[in-house]
Design a binder for these strands. Structure first.
Length: 500
RNA sequence: GCUCCCGUAGUCUAGUCCGGUCAAGGAUAUCGGGCCUUCGACCCGACAACGCGGGUUCGAAUCCCGCCGGGAGCACCA
């Protein structure tokens, strides 16, 4: 290496070097992740996980998992089953958490803080119907209750807590500037009433805080030093700061990232939820969910997802990236590990006239570049299965069974029965190369595809000796991973398609 | 409509805070070539970008103003 010249090369920031967090000190950083338990973690959540984990490690800090399980809404329900699913997802991603909290346990704390804010005269209990409230907010009009005396606010708040109001009848609102330029920020609702059954705490609470108020409380109470969240939550930052200013508290700084979408992954949490629950999807690891679990199932490693995510840094731009970018990231990691196998999607039987009888099998390397991965025996013989499309594409031509022998294909394919071809030597010729499986030894394979469908195909015999979790490259098809729950020795061998 | 954010090649991204070393770096895609009995991997090469218009300056991707384009928010969801 030319050392002197190397120094002149502009330093390129690697994926292991993201900007420092403001005011961060090693050993004194506390971060938190706050998933809403309504679905498994998916590729869209990767940034939250990877970035929080990255900074936690960078500063040797703590990472808290705080389930944002306030009661939600009719459209957005909490599902208790997802608490464990999400924790398993984090384990799978090798992201340990230092503590786990549930918002739904922390209501007394939220109420106590509410009293503090009420006492400041900064709030009022609004009795407007939701629609009226929104119209007034848009128009910048104060409703009658805004001027209510402090004593009345206290009384009405107590009435909310004591069950004197039905859902939707009263909310606690924060007084901001009604003439403020941003309509979204005007007199936000802090607490509302809901009778929805909560899977953890049932009907124990009926007055629930909204996200921004609960976090204004919890980020302080939990000692969070930096809030890392998507930029869809910037208005919530402002709310938290507003509340903290009101109470004379200096809260943690906020750091954001833009929305990340994978082009091929049209993620709909509600659709996934419905399909998983109905059984139409094969659980939360169904490839159609694009969940992190489903990516692992496909043989896409945690490291690949991490590198993929890190490459976007803390960019605030909303981006849409083709899945190919993730695949490319994974390919370089998976390629050295994946043993090569021949696989045929739509096999057709071909009998070869003049095939050398002594050529009953051939020894092939498991990996073209890594001899240390050993060899496998592929049964040959005079009868083969070949890809139908390839045979049809080369009528009357000479083709080569890869690594084995050349064949002359017939000009016309028979309507039924086996196709007859003629042996044409073993020398390596520059002719189309086909995958093949000797009829004397094949393994049935079931491939789970990205669209959730199963394809049945044939592979060379050695596939029968696969083990769960093994990675293979089906040559010219793509990388696959043997399903974790496949029982060795049973047929078909079940694999999940990964990517090209 | 209002508020905030963003705008570097097909797609991402570095650089923008502290203007010159950026006639703009990397990744991915695409196209060539090499290697190899894969359409995979690897190696070599090519293509290709600072949204537009003003201003400040000796000098602007970087600072200022205007415009245009894109996204998000304007929920008693998170």
């Amino acid at each position: 290496m030319g050392g002197a010249e190397a120094a002149a090369v502009r330093p390129v920031r690697g994926v292991d070097d993201l900007p420092e967090l403001p005011g961060a000190t090693r050993g004194a950083v506390v971060l938190r992740m706050a998933p809403f338990p309504s679905g498994a973690l998916h590729i869209g959540n990767a940034r939250m996980i990877v970035l929080n984990d990255y900074y936690r490690r960078k500063y040797d800090g703590k990472l808290l998992l705080v389930f944002d399980d306030t009661v939600g809404s009719e459209e957005k329900r909490v599902d208790a089953e997802l608490f464990d699913v999400i924790r398993a997802d984090l384990d799978r991603c090798e992201v340990p958490v230092d503590a786990v909290y549930y918002k739904s346990d922390r209501l007394p704390m939220h109420y106590a803080w509410a009293e503090r804010v009420i006492a400041l005269g900064a709030t009022y209990v609004c009795l407007c119907p939701a629609a009226t409230l929104q119209e007034n907010r848009r128009a910048g009009i104060a409703c009658a209750e805004r001027a209510q005396p402090l004593g009345e606010t206290h009384a009405l708040w107590k009435k909310m807590l004591d069950g004197g109001f039905g859902p939707g009848d009263a909310v606690l609102r924060l007084k901001t500037d009604l003439a403020g330029p941003d309509p979204a920020f005007r007199d936000r609702v802090l607490f509302r009433i809901s009778d929805l059954d909560h899977p953890r705490v049932g009907h124990r609470w009926r007055v629930w805080p909204l996200l921004e108020f609960s976090w204004a409380v919890d980020d302080i109470e939990l000692g969070v030093t930096h809030v890392l969240r998507g930029k869809d939550l910037v208005m919530e930052d402002r709310m938290q700061r507003y509340l903290w200013d009101l109470l004379g508290i200096r809260g943690p700084p906020f750091v954001h990232w833009g929305l990340l979408r994978v082009r091929e992954a049209k993620i709909s949490k509600s659709k996934s939820y419905a399909e998983v629950k109905s059984g139409l999807y094969d659980g939360w690891a169904d490839p159609r969910t694009w969940s992190l679990a489903s990516l692992m199932r496909r043989g896409i490693s945690v490291e690949s997802v991490r590198a993929f995510t890190m490459s976007f840094g803390l960019s605030l731009a909303d981006i849409e990236v083709p899945a190919e970018t993730l695949y490319a990231e994974n390919r370089v990691r998976i390629d050295p590990l994946a043993r090569r196998r021949m696989y045929l999607d739509d096999p057709v039987e071909v009998v070869v006239d003049g095939f050398p009888p002594e050529l009953t099998s051939v020894e092939l390397p498991n990996h073209p570049d890594r001899p240390e991965l050993g060899m496998r025996t592929v049964p040959a013989g005079g009868t083969f299965y070949l890809p139908r499309a390839d045979v049809a594409a080369h009528p009357g031509e000479t083709v080569r069974l890869k690594d084995l022998a050349n064949l002359d294909l017939p000009a016309r394919l028979p309507v039924s029965g086996p196709i007859r071809a003629t042996f044409a030597g073993r020398e390596n010729r520059r002719v189309p190369r086909l995958q093949w499986a000797g009829a004397a030894g094949v393994a049935q394979v079931d491939v789970l595809d990205l669209d959730g469908r199963h394809r049945q195909g044939l592979a060379e015999a050695s596939m029968a000796r696969a083990a769960p979790g093994d990675l293979y490259q089906f040559e010219r098809v793509g990388f696959v991973r043997v399903e974790s729950d496949w029982v060795p020795g049973t047929s078909p061998v079940r694999v999940c398609y990964g990517h090209p």
